[in-house]
Design a binder for these strands. Structure first.
Lengths: 139, 139
DNA sequence: TTACATGCAAATGTTTTGCAAGGTT
DNA sequence: AACCTTGCAAAACATTTGCATGTAA
């Protein structure tokens, strides 16, 4: 995904194309582990874009509202962000070293459908995270 | 669950029995929605126990380490806590009004087993939260 | 008595907001 | 030009830490 395609992604969502927004999407496109705000600020600084933290939070808010990114949490007391366009998946987080792996399989929709009916909820999304020890940290 | 039983719960975990710890467990026993730290502070104040916030965080840390409570997050940028002794379940969170309902069914273990094998992870726990609109907020 | 738990205060980390200035369309 | 986006500064909220004091066992 190059800068031009990313700009299109923004235009399609009726969002103005700015350096900071492009930078945020670039980072999220380039990594598989969901990024937190600090990751994003560090990346932007390296790219000489250096957006303010308030700007990054506002960008992420707009992106979530426009379904460009999703929020994810790993029990850290802070929110992480990943592209909403990623194929649906879940995460396995190592509680010791923090490494993250993806899981492609997801049979959660059935559970969601049942719950939706039973509770009269209109379910829009779900988060599923696994916690444990990665291969290295098991010793 | 009365105060005596809660004290036993602490003794079984080799933890000293204090008013603040009893209070925290009392609250978590009394509600089905996972509590955040502010909920806990408010509850303790009402009970004239009034623990300091640092104390509450330390209590929760010890409780998590001793498997008395679990951490849960609803994409709020903060951690919530619920009893680990609750039957395994998941949550449905209304993104508009914040109301929370429980789901008892859980077929996630199969997914976990597969992923565990594939990634050589030793999976210890998982969080699954659904987000959507409750019956009232759909209009 | 002894080890652990707490209070207080301060620091650190995360997220939000107001307002003026700047940039995109 | 009009509207949206950003920077800056400050505030609000969430979490952690050091150290002296208090308390359960």
């Amino acid at each position: 995904m190059n800068t031009h395609d990313i700009a299109d992604q923004l235009k399609n969502a009726d969002l103005k194309v700015t350096q900071a927004r492009i930078g945020v999407l670039e980072l999220l496109h380039s990594t598989s582990t969901p990024s937190d705000v600090q990751d994003i600020l560090d990346y932007l600084r390296k790219q000489d874009i250096s957006a303010d933290q308030a700007t990054v939070y506002r960008i992420l808010k707009v992106f979530v509202e426009n379904d460009l990114v999703r929020q994810v949490e790993f029990n850290e007391g802070k929110v992480r962000y990943e592209l909403a366009s990623l194929p649906h998946h879940h995460h396995v987080v190592c509680v010791k070293c923090g490494s993250v792996r993806d899981i492609e399989e997801c049979d959660v929709d059935e559970i969601a459908a049942k719950a939706s009916k039973k509770l009269s909820f209109k379910i829009q999304s779900h988060n599923l995270e696994f916690f444990g020890l990665c291969r290295n940290c098991q010793h």
